[in-house]
Design a protein around this nucleic acid. Sequence first.
DNA 1: TCCATTTATTTACCTGGGTAAATATTATAC
DNA 2: GTATAATATTTACCCAGGTAAATAAATGGA
Lengths: 134, 134
Amino acid sequence: MNSNKTFHEVHQIARLSSKVANDCLKEYGLYHAQWSILYCLMKNGQMIQTDIWRYLNVEAPTVTRTLTRLEESGWVVRKHGRDKRERLVELTDKAKELLPEIEKNVQRAEKRLLEKLTETEQLQLINLLKKINS
Amino acid sequence: MNSNKTFHEVHQIARLSSKVANDCLKEYGLYHAQWSILYCLMKNGQMIQTDIWRYLNVEAPTVTRTLTRLEESGWVVRKHGRDKRERLVELTDKAKELLPEIEKNVQRAEKRLLEKLTETEQLQLINLLKKINS
DNA sequence: TCCATTTATTTACCTGGGTAAATATTATAC
DNA sequence: GTATAATATTTACCCAGGTAAATAAATGGA
Protein backbone atom coordinates (compact mmCIF):
# COMPACT_ATOMS: atom_id res chain seq x y z
CA MET A 1 0.00 0.00 0.00
CA ASN A 2 2.76 2.46 0.90
CA SER A 3 4.36 2.17 -2.55
CA ASN A 4 1.26 3.63 -4.17
CA LYS A 5 2.05 6.83 -6.10
CA THR A 6 5.80 6.38 -5.86
CA PHE A 7 6.17 6.96 -9.58
CA HIS A 8 4.19 10.16 -9.24
CA GLU A 9 6.28 11.57 -6.40
CA VAL A 10 9.55 10.62 -8.07
CA HIS A 11 8.37 12.21 -11.28
CA GLN A 12 7.49 15.42 -9.48
CA ILE A 13 10.82 15.75 -7.76
CA ALA A 14 12.67 14.92 -10.97
CA ARG A 15 11.01 17.75 -12.86
CA LEU A 16 11.55 20.17 -10.00
CA SER A 17 15.17 19.14 -9.81
CA SER A 18 15.95 19.64 -13.48
CA LYS A 19 14.07 22.92 -13.43
CA VAL A 20 16.22 24.23 -10.57
CA ALA A 21 19.37 22.95 -12.26
CA ASN A 22 18.51 24.41 -15.68
CA ASP A 23 17.70 27.68 -14.02
CA CYS A 24 21.09 28.09 -12.39
CA LEU A 25 22.88 26.96 -15.57
CA LYS A 26 20.95 29.31 -17.83
CA GLU A 27 23.43 32.18 -17.52
CA TYR A 28 26.13 29.92 -18.97
CA GLY A 29 23.94 28.64 -21.81
CA LEU A 30 23.99 25.14 -20.33
CA TYR A 31 21.35 22.50 -19.51
CA HIS A 32 21.44 19.98 -16.70
CA ALA A 33 22.39 16.99 -18.87
CA GLN A 34 25.23 19.00 -20.36
CA TRP A 35 26.42 19.94 -16.90
CA SER A 36 26.43 16.31 -15.79
CA ILE A 37 28.84 15.46 -18.61
CA LEU A 38 31.07 18.46 -17.94
CA TYR A 39 31.16 17.57 -14.23
CA CYS A 40 32.16 14.04 -15.15
CA LEU A 41 35.03 15.29 -17.31
CA MET A 42 36.14 17.79 -14.66
CA LYS A 43 36.51 15.02 -12.08
CA ASN A 44 37.93 12.30 -14.34
CA GLY A 45 39.84 14.16 -17.06
CA GLN A 46 39.86 12.83 -20.60
CA MET A 47 37.27 10.08 -21.18
CA ILE A 48 35.90 8.05 -24.06
CA GLN A 49 32.18 8.24 -24.69
CA THR A 50 31.52 4.76 -23.39
CA ASP A 51 33.05 5.74 -20.04
CA ILE A 52 30.68 8.67 -19.89
CA TRP A 53 27.40 6.94 -20.64
CA ARG A 54 28.27 4.00 -18.43
CA TYR A 55 29.08 6.35 -15.55
CA LEU A 56 25.97 8.46 -16.04
CA ASN A 57 23.85 5.37 -16.63
CA VAL A 58 22.26 6.63 -19.85
CA GLU A 59 22.33 5.22 -23.37
CA ALA A 60 25.09 5.92 -25.88
CA PRO A 61 22.96 7.91 -28.37
CA THR A 62 21.95 10.34 -25.63
CA VAL A 63 25.58 11.12 -24.88
CA THR A 64 26.45 11.42 -28.56
CA ARG A 65 23.81 14.09 -29.02
CA THR A 66 24.66 16.08 -25.92
CA LEU A 67 28.39 15.98 -26.72
CA THR A 68 27.68 17.31 -30.20
CA ARG A 69 25.98 20.30 -28.62
CA LEU A 70 28.75 20.78 -26.07
CA GLU A 71 31.33 20.70 -28.87
CA GLU A 72 29.37 23.19 -30.97
CA SER A 73 29.16 25.59 -28.04
CA GLY A 74 32.87 25.22 -27.26
CA TRP A 75 32.88 23.31 -23.96
CA VAL A 76 34.54 20.09 -25.15
CA VAL A 77 36.64 18.72 -28.01
CA ARG A 78 36.61 15.18 -29.38
CA LYS A 79 39.63 13.46 -30.88
CA HIS A 80 40.18 10.02 -32.34
CA GLY A 81 42.45 7.78 -30.31
CA ARG A 82 44.72 4.89 -31.24
CA ASP A 83 41.60 2.70 -31.39
CA LYS A 84 39.81 4.50 -34.19
CA ARG A 85 36.38 3.42 -32.96
CA GLU A 86 36.76 5.45 -29.79
CA ARG A 87 36.37 9.18 -29.41
CA LEU A 88 38.41 10.86 -26.67
CA VAL A 89 36.52 13.69 -25.03
CA GLU A 90 38.17 16.50 -23.09
CA LEU A 91 37.33 19.93 -21.74
CA THR A 92 38.32 23.11 -23.57
CA ASP A 93 40.21 25.92 -21.82
CA LYS A 94 36.97 27.88 -21.58
CA ALA A 95 35.39 24.96 -19.73
CA LYS A 96 38.35 24.48 -17.39
CA GLU A 97 38.23 28.16 -16.51
CA LEU A 98 34.49 28.42 -15.88
CA LEU A 99 33.59 25.06 -14.36
CA PRO A 100 34.75 25.75 -10.77
CA GLU A 101 32.51 28.82 -10.63
CA ILE A 102 29.61 26.92 -12.18
CA GLU A 103 30.06 24.10 -9.69
CA LYS A 104 29.61 26.53 -6.81
CA ASN A 105 26.42 27.82 -8.41
CA VAL A 106 25.11 24.29 -8.84
CA GLN A 107 25.85 23.48 -5.22
CA ARG A 108 23.88 26.52 -4.11
CA ALA A 109 20.99 25.41 -6.34
CA GLU A 110 21.10 21.93 -4.81
CA LYS A 111 20.82 23.51 -1.40
CA ARG A 112 17.76 25.49 -2.51
CA LEU A 113 16.16 22.30 -3.83
CA LEU A 114 16.52 20.69 -0.40
CA GLU A 115 15.88 23.69 1.77
CA LYS A 116 12.58 22.32 3.10
CA LEU A 117 14.43 19.39 4.65
CA THR A 118 16.57 19.38 7.78
CA GLU A 119 20.24 18.36 7.51
CA THR A 120 19.37 14.90 8.79
CA GLU A 121 16.55 14.48 6.32
CA GLN A 122 18.80 15.55 3.44
CA LEU A 123 21.29 12.85 4.35
CA GLN A 124 18.50 10.31 4.69
CA LEU A 125 17.17 11.18 1.25
CA ILE A 126 20.50 10.88 -0.52
CA ASN A 127 21.19 7.58 1.18
CA LEU A 128 17.79 6.16 0.25
CA LEU A 129 18.24 7.22 -3.38
CA LYS A 130 21.71 5.70 -3.48
CA LYS A 131 20.36 2.47 -2.03
CA ILE A 132 17.69 2.17 -4.73
CA ASN A 133 20.17 2.92 -7.48
CA SER A 134 22.84 0.55 -6.17
CA MET B 1 28.53 19.42 1.64
CA ASN B 2 25.83 16.76 1.96
CA SER B 3 23.78 18.29 -0.87
CA ASN B 4 26.58 17.59 -3.34
CA LYS B 5 25.41 15.32 -6.19
CA THR B 6 21.76 15.56 -5.24
CA PHE B 7 20.84 16.41 -8.84
CA HIS B 8 22.75 13.37 -10.00
CA GLU B 9 21.05 10.94 -7.63
CA VAL B 10 17.60 12.37 -8.32
CA HIS B 11 18.26 12.13 -12.03
CA GLN B 12 19.30 8.50 -11.72
CA ILE B 13 16.24 7.47 -9.78
CA ALA B 14 13.99 9.38 -12.15
CA ARG B 15 15.27 7.53 -15.19
CA LEU B 16 15.09 4.20 -13.40
CA SER B 17 11.55 4.99 -12.30
CA SER B 18 10.25 5.88 -15.75
CA LYS B 19 12.02 2.86 -17.21
CA VAL B 20 10.28 0.51 -14.79
CA ALA B 21 6.96 2.23 -15.40
CA ASN B 22 7.28 2.19 -19.19
CA ASP B 23 8.23 -1.44 -19.03
CA CYS B 24 5.11 -2.54 -17.20
CA LEU B 25 2.91 -0.36 -19.43
CA LYS B 26 4.44 -1.63 -22.66
CA GLU B 27 1.95 -4.47 -23.11
CA TYR B 28 -0.87 -1.91 -23.20
CA GLY B 29 0.94 0.41 -25.63
CA LEU B 30 1.18 3.09 -22.94
CA TYR B 31 3.98 5.31 -21.58
CA HIS B 32 4.35 6.60 -18.03
CA ALA B 33 3.18 10.13 -18.78
CA GLN B 34 0.10 8.74 -20.49
CA TRP B 35 -0.60 6.54 -17.50
CA SER B 36 -0.36 9.49 -15.13
CA ILE B 37 -3.12 11.25 -17.04
CA LEU B 38 -5.31 8.16 -17.25
CA TYR B 39 -4.85 7.60 -13.50
CA CYS B 40 -5.87 11.17 -12.89
CA LEU B 41 -9.07 10.74 -14.93
CA MET B 42 -9.83 7.40 -13.28
CA LYS B 43 -9.76 8.99 -9.82
CA ASN B 44 -11.43 12.30 -10.67
CA GLY B 45 -13.74 11.53 -13.58
CA GLN B 46 -14.25 14.10 -16.32
CA MET B 47 -11.70 16.94 -16.17
CA ILE B 48 -10.70 19.94 -18.24
CA GLN B 49 -7.11 20.11 -19.42
CA THR B 50 -6.19 22.87 -17.00
CA ASP B 51 -7.25 20.67 -14.10
CA ILE B 52 -4.95 17.95 -15.40
CA TRP B 53 -1.77 19.96 -15.91
CA ARG B 54 -2.24 21.83 -12.65
CA TYR B 55 -2.69 18.54 -10.80
CA LEU B 56 0.28 16.86 -12.48
CA ASN B 57 2.35 20.02 -12.15
CA VAL B 58 3.42 20.11 -15.80
CA GLU B 59 2.87 22.73 -18.49
CA ALA B 60 -0.23 22.95 -20.65
CA PRO B 61 1.45 22.10 -23.99
CA THR B 62 2.80 18.85 -22.54
CA VAL B 63 -0.71 17.74 -21.62
CA THR B 64 -2.09 18.80 -24.99
CA ARG B 65 0.40 16.60 -26.79
CA THR B 66 -0.05 13.57 -24.56
CA LEU B 67 -3.85 13.85 -24.73
CA THR B 68 -3.70 13.95 -28.52
CA ARG B 69 -1.85 10.63 -28.44
CA LEU B 70 -4.24 9.13 -25.89
CA GLU B 71 -7.18 10.18 -28.05
CA GLU B 72 -5.60 8.72 -31.19
CA SER B 73 -5.05 5.40 -29.45
CA GLY B 74 -8.59 5.34 -28.07
CA TRP B 75 -8.08 5.89 -24.35
CA VAL B 76 -9.82 9.26 -23.97
CA VAL B 77 -12.27 11.52 -25.77
CA ARG B 78 -12.35 15.31 -25.69
CA LYS B 79 -15.52 17.39 -25.97
CA HIS B 80 -16.18 21.10 -25.91
CA GLY B 81 -18.09 22.34 -22.89
CA ARG B 82 -20.34 25.30 -22.30
CA ASP B 83 -17.22 27.48 -22.10
CA LYS B 84 -15.94 26.94 -25.60
CA ARG B 85 -12.33 27.55 -24.57
CA GLU B 86 -12.31 24.47 -22.37
CA ARG B 87 -11.97 20.88 -23.49
CA LEU B 88 -13.63 18.25 -21.33
CA VAL B 89 -11.60 15.06 -21.18
CA GLU B 90 -13.02 11.68 -20.23
CA LEU B 91 -12.08 8.01 -20.41
CA THR B 92 -13.41 5.74 -23.14
CA ASP B 93 -15.10 2.42 -22.31
CA LYS B 94 -11.90 0.61 -23.29
CA ALA B 95 -10.00 2.68 -20.73
CA LYS B 96 -12.57 2.16 -17.99
CA GLU B 97 -12.42 -1.57 -18.57
CA LEU B 98 -8.65 -1.95 -18.61
CA LEU B 99 -7.47 0.63 -16.09
CA PRO B 100 -8.11 -1.38 -12.90
CA GLU B 101 -5.95 -4.22 -14.23
CA ILE B 102 -3.25 -1.78 -15.35
CA GLU B 103 -3.27 -0.12 -11.95
CA LYS B 104 -2.48 -3.44 -10.30
CA ASN B 105 0.42 -3.92 -12.71
CA VAL B 106 1.73 -0.47 -11.96
CA GLN B 107 1.54 -1.08 -8.22
CA ARG B 108 3.57 -4.25 -8.62
CA ALA B 109 6.14 -2.31 -10.67
CA GLU B 110 6.34 0.34 -7.95
CA LYS B 111 7.07 -2.41 -5.43
CA ARG B 112 9.88 -3.72 -7.63
CA LEU B 113 11.35 -0.23 -7.87
CA LEU B 114 11.52 -0.03 -4.08
CA GLU B 115 12.40 -3.62 -3.31
CA LYS B 116 15.87 -2.73 -2.03
CA LEU B 117 14.34 -0.65 0.75
CA THR B 118 12.66 -1.86 3.91
CA GLU B 119 9.03 -0.93 4.57
CA THR B 120 10.16 1.82 6.92
CA GLU B 121 12.62 3.21 4.40
CA GLN B 122 9.95 3.23 1.68
CA LEU B 123 7.69 5.32 3.88
CA GLN B 124 10.57 7.64 4.75
CA LEU B 125 11.38 8.16 1.09
CA ILE B 126 7.83 9.01 0.05
CA ASN B 127 7.48 11.41 2.94
CA LEU B 128 10.76 13.16 2.14
CA LEU B 129 9.77 13.53 -1.52
CA LYS B 130 6.36 14.89 -0.55
CA LYS B 131 7.99 17.37 1.80
CA ILE B 132 10.26 18.73 -0.94
CA ASN B 133 7.38 19.03 -3.38
CA SER B 134 5.01 20.65 -0.91
C1' DT C 1 44.59 -15.18 -43.79
C1' DC C 2 39.82 -14.54 -43.74
C1' DC C 3 35.36 -14.60 -41.86
C1' DA C 4 32.48 -14.03 -37.82
C1' DT C 5 31.90 -11.65 -33.62
C1' DT C 6 32.41 -7.98 -30.58
C1' DT C 7 32.85 -3.10 -29.49
C1' DA C 8 32.24 2.12 -30.13
C1' DT C 9 29.69 5.33 -32.18
C1' DT C 10 26.14 7.24 -34.96
C1' DT C 11 21.56 7.81 -37.32
C1' DA C 12 16.63 7.76 -37.40
C1' DC C 13 12.66 7.96 -34.93
C1' DC C 14 9.68 7.67 -30.74
C1' DT C 15 7.96 9.93 -26.01
C1' DG C 16 8.00 13.74 -22.89
C1' DG C 17 9.71 17.90 -20.41
C1' DG C 18 10.25 23.08 -21.18
C1' DT C 19 9.35 28.26 -23.18
C1' DA C 20 7.35 31.83 -26.26
C1' DA C 21 3.94 33.26 -29.03
C1' DA C 22 -0.58 32.76 -31.47
C1' DT C 23 -5.74 31.91 -31.24
C1' DA C 24 -10.15 31.79 -29.53
C1' DT C 25 -13.28 32.67 -26.04
C1' DT C 26 -14.88 34.71 -21.79
C1' DA C 27 -14.84 38.23 -18.23
C1' DT C 28 -14.30 42.94 -16.88
C1' DA C 29 -13.99 47.90 -16.81
C1' DC C 30 -15.36 52.05 -18.66
C1' DG D 1 -21.74 48.26 -25.83
C1' DT D 2 -17.09 48.14 -26.75
C1' DA D 3 -12.34 47.87 -25.85
C1' DT D 4 -9.21 45.63 -22.77
C1' DA D 5 -7.65 41.99 -19.83
C1' DA D 6 -7.71 37.32 -18.44
C1' DT D 7 -8.20 32.37 -19.44
C1' DA D 8 -7.82 27.80 -22.11
C1' DT D 9 -5.70 25.70 -25.56
C1' DT D 10 -2.63 25.07 -29.33
C1' DT D 11 1.53 25.58 -32.33
C1' DA D 12 6.39 25.78 -33.12
C1' DC D 13 10.67 24.84 -31.49
C1' DC D 14 14.17 23.80 -27.88
C1' DC D 15 16.67 19.81 -24.84
C1' DA D 16 16.84 15.06 -23.15
C1' DG D 17 15.53 10.25 -22.43
C1' DG D 18 14.68 5.71 -24.92
C1' DT D 19 15.08 1.69 -28.79
C1' DA D 20 16.47 -0.42 -33.24
C1' DA D 21 19.41 -0.61 -36.81
C1' DA D 22 23.53 0.93 -39.46
C1' DT D 23 28.52 1.75 -39.72
C1' DA D 24 33.29 1.28 -38.75
C1' DA D 25 37.04 -0.69 -36.48
C1' DA D 26 39.21 -4.22 -33.68
C1' DT D 27 39.40 -9.03 -32.05
C1' DG D 28 39.43 -13.99 -32.36
C1' DG D 29 39.15 -18.53 -34.15
C1' DA D 30 39.37 -21.96 -37.89
